[in-house]
Design a protein around this nucleic acid. Structure first.
Lengths: 194, 194
DNA sequence: GTCTATATAAAGATAGAC
DNA sequence: GTCTATCTTTATATAGAC
């Protein structure tokens, strides 16, 4: 066996990853405009010039740092609940990946983030719309997605006092009938309204 | 009677108002960070220096331009519907005042806008919470507010394709059972409750 | 009172030393 | 490969002419 020294390329990848992590965090916390190369560099404990060297521009750094995995197509099996359906397309109340938070944080002010968010949300709407049965499936799906978006923004990005300390489970519980109503599972007692 | 020439003070107020209107629009469209004094001045057709002369700083211009009227306390009479209740505290689907849009546009990235938005939303939650009867009144109120927020953001700020062309009335209609469920009214109760 | 010109500051980007 | 130093740009803010 040869010994495996940390080669240059490996060290480089580690540094790069550290920068990307720092960038994700900064973008998620402060948004695109207020995040500076210098701040990211300081957090990653590297020289600002190195960040440029690696990524070329702030714009590219953002793209590399936050690129969201696109949603896998809604595969097999019927969903057991609306929540499961939402979870499958990446919409849940719980902790959100930092990359997504970064996009959300910036989506109202940074055009590229807006475009990315729109694309992803449109995709989620389409998938959700295809999964529910109703004349207004797409509109209903859009309102469900908008609801989840609003709750996530209020809770994770705005820190509304009334939501800050409440567990994700509790929120999901209170939200459930409302989401079911949106999905068109509206009317009360049918034992099987799935 | 003396004639009434447009005195300096009057002209000054008009110019000021033109600047404020231009600022509101720019802030609503691009957010705080990407709005420059120059852009505002150009839109108002005045010199950039004049904007500074009048308002002192970009920060103060923002404050003056977007200051939201605080919500009048939920006065007389029982509300006839959740929608009416929401409308009373300033939450509706329809067209939003530009000052509010400006705050919303900037609230994820500009700390002062965040604070303003939080204060207003907290207030709305409190008022709404006081108006509905439930053990979890405040949490339910917060989720209602978050839902309205999400729909407004998705529709007015992000331009989601599925919501863009839909009338406010249509959205309100689809949303109604969902809001009622959140309010604890007419909840389609399931036997197992969880 | 309004505009021209400029000071000042911050941040993105680059060149070159080591 | 990494850092020092610097260039450039852009935007806020100010001073002074008219």
């Amino acid at each position: 066996m040869e010994k495996t020294p940390t080669s240059r390329v490996v060290r480089r990848r580690r540094t790069e990853e550290r920068i990307l992590a720092a960038a994700r965090e900064a973008f998620a916390e402060r948004g695109f405009e207020r995040t500076t190369i210098r701040i990211v560099a300081a957090a990653a404990e590297v020289d600002p010039a190195l960040v440029m060297q690696y990524f070329g521009s702030k714009r590219e750094l953002f793209e590399r740092a936050v690129q969201m995995p696109s949603i896998p197509p809604l595969g097999g099996g019927l969903a057991e609940s609306i929540e499961e359906l939402l979870a499958r397309i990446g919409m849940k109340i719980g902790p959100i990946p930092q990359a997504s938070l970064a996009v959300m944080r910036s989506m109202l002010t940074h055009p590229e983030a807006a475009q990315g968010a729109r694309a992803k949300l449109d995709d989620q709407v389409a998938q959700l719309g295809a999964a529910i049965e109703d004349d207004d499936a797409e509109l209903r799906a859009a309102l469900m997605v908008a609801t989840m978006l609003g709750v996530t923004i209020a809770r994770q990005l705005l820190d509304l006092t009334a939501l800050r300390e409440v567990s994700a489970e509790r929120i999901a519980e209170i939200l459930r009938p409302s989401m079911n109503a949106l999905a068109g599972v509206d009317v009360p007692v049918r034992d099987d309204a799935g």
